[in-house]
């Protein structure tokens, strides 16, 4: 569980990866090519970021023929907010501020 949580935070800590998630939020089920079109990144960089998002289970993939479609998967974020943050209900505000700090400081 904690390893999975680390993966989610690590994945979310990068602005390029957040931009990819935002692109999927706007239009779900995009191919690599479609995702590259809207990004100021090389295809290799997008591929690398998508792999990391997949490992963190923030992006789910479906194959349609030879096309790999990418879908935003918010379930791990929900798991963190419900299981991890609300577990420390009384410390909710400080937990949220820690979360904010972790997300903002950990940009690799």
């Amino acid at each position: 569980m904690s390893e999975a949580v680390n993966d989610v935070f690590r994945a979310l800590a990068d602005p390029s990866r957040r931009a990819l998630l935002d692109a999927l939020f706007k239009r779900n089920g995009q191919t690599l090519g479609e995702l590259c079109d809207g990004m100021a990144m090389t295809r290799q960089a997008v591929t690398k970021h998508l792999a990391l998002l997949e490992d963190a289970n923030l992006v789910a993939v479906v194959w349609r023929g030879r096309e790999k479609l990418h879908y935003l998967n918010p379930v791990p974020i929900h798991e963190i907010s419900e299981r991890w943050i609300s577990k420390y209900e009384r410390g909710r505000l400080s937990a949220l501020s820690d979360l904010k700090k972790a997300l903002e400081s950990d940009d690799e």
């Binding site: 999975a4 779900n28 089920g29 289970n57 789910a60 993939v61 479906v62 349609r64 023929g65 479609l69 879908y71 998967n73 918010p74 379930v75 791990p76 798991e79």
Partner: peptide, 14 residues
């Protein structure tokens, strides 16, 4: 089972 229409939503949990 090929998807003719791509799905709208795909959610995964382990």
């Amino acid at each position: 089972d090929e998807l003719i229409v791509p799905p709208d939503v795909v959610y995964v949990t382990y």
